[in-house]
């Protein structure tokens, strides 16, 4: 019995080491002087620490400015998606209107159109609006999502009928019910969606690369590209860059892991 338990832990630990290795290597390389990188396997156990690689990555990748851009863009996308999704979800869950099924199907249909398939025409639109190299270009196309609408609508549908009747008897209209009852009760679903939306918005790559070309608007993910090019002589740079750009999401996962898991699995298990 005991040997079996030890075997299980050994297998678990082996897998954990393999899975975690790329992250661990990036972190240890990012906190050591460049000369130590060629000292394998000693590099895996840091002896002297330095913040120099982070400073260099911030400077040569212009990551400070890019982090601000990423923060602004992510805040607008997440805020916008949460608001538009709550509003649309409320309409589908609690408001009577003609052609509801058709409109709902159209909303769900947007999930079948991958962003990659529409970049050519969307690029043309953004160009036409004169929005290349602007926050609008990075934010506007992502201000609504059927995934959020669907997730929050499911939560709204779970609000007991009694509460709706009671709220109506108390003289609350739709806005009162939305703010006072529906949204507070749907908080878990809204939280899961918020974390999920943050993850996607912060990690975007293709679209920001296509529509921005200047330091004033490029996001941190795109900033990493310039560090990727400069890697031959100095592995510290890409490693430090990866750590810097990954940290916000790392903290998100640390504090909101439960919500994120809920968001990720709601498509699979909730049905």
């Amino acid at each position: 019995m005991a040997t079996r338990t030890i075997g299980r832990y050994a297998l678990l630990t082996f897998c954990a080491v393999v899975v975690f290795l790329p992250i661990y290597v990036a972190v240890v390389i990012a906190i050591q002087p460049a000369a130590r990188v060629v000292d394998f396997p000693g590099v895996l156990l840091p002896k002297s620490l330095t913040l120099e690689p982070f400073r260099n990555a911030m400077r040569s990748g212009n990551l400070g400015r890019y982090l601000v851009n990423s923060g602004v863009v992510t805040a607008f996308i997440v805020g916008g998606q949460v608001i538009t999704s709550i509003l649309a979800a409320y309409a589908f869950a609690f408001v009577q209107f003609p052609f509801k099924r058709v409109v709902f199907t159209l909303f769900l249909a947007t999930l079948m159109v991958p962003a990659e398939a529409t970049i050519v025409a969307n690029y043309e639109t953004i160009q036409h609006f004169g929005w290349l190299d602007s926050y609008q270009a990075l934010v506007m196309p992502f201000l609504a999502t059927a995934f959020g609408t669907f997730l929050i609508r499911q939560a709204f549908l779970g609000v007991p009928q009694d509460l709706r009747d009671a709220s109506a008897l108390d003289g609350y209209g739709h806005w009162g019910f939305l703010r006072g009852v529906a949204v507070p009760l749907a908080r878990p679903a809204i939280a899961a969606f918020t974390v999920f939306s943050f993850l996607l918005a912060w990690n975007q790559y293709l679209w920001p690369l296509l529509v921005t070309n200047d330091d004033a608007h490029r996001t941190v993910q795109i900033g990493l590209k310039s560090l990727a090019g400069a890697n031959v002589a100095n592995l510290n740079l890409p490693a430090a860059g990866a750590v810097i750009a990954g940290l916000p999401i790392f903290f998100l996962l640390l504090f909101f892991q439960r919500h994120l898991v809920r968001g990720l699995t709601s498509g699979a298990v909730k049905g």
């Binding site: 990036a26 990690n203 990493l224 490693a239 990866a242």
Partner: peptide
């Protein structure tokens, strides 16, 4: 992210 994983 894709970029972070790629740099790693």
């Amino acid at each position: 992210s894709v970029a972070v994983a790629s740099l790693m």
